[in-house]
Amino acid sequence: MGDKADVWQGTLTLMILKTLETLGPLHGYGIARRIEQISGEVLSLNYGTVYPALLKLEQEGSIECAWGVSDNNRKAKYYKLTRAGRKQLGREAREWQQAQAILAKVLSAEPST
C-alpha cells in the first residue's frame, strides 16, 4: 500500500455533500481539490471519479447544477446543495458516525484471556 489512502466505497458522495454545504456552489474540480486539501493531501482521489458521483447526486435530486464563470473567468458547471441534499447529508453523516462508533467499540475490545 502507498502513502496515500484510497477513498472508501460509498464515502465520496458524503464528502461531496459536505464540501458543498461548507463552501457553497462549486465546480467539479474545486470539489475534488477541496476534498484532497481537507484530508491534508493524505487521500488519493482520482478526479475523474467525482463526476459520476456528482451525476448520481444530481439524479437523486440532492444537488443541482448550472453553468457559471469561475474566479479565473473560465466557464464552469457549478453544483449546489438542494434541500433534499441537506437532509441526505444529515442522515448519512449520522449513519456514518454510528458505524464508526460501532467499529471503534469492536476494535477496542480486549482479547479474552
Binding site: Y29, N72, K75
Partner: peptide, 16 residues
C-alpha cells in the same frame, strides 16, 4: 455538455 465540463476541469487544473 460533459465534454465541455471536462475541458473546463482540465483548464482550471492546468492553470493551478
Amino acid at each position: 455538455e460533459f465534454a465541455a465540463e471536462l475541458k473546463s476541469h482540465l483548464q482550471l487544473h492546468m492553470e493551478d
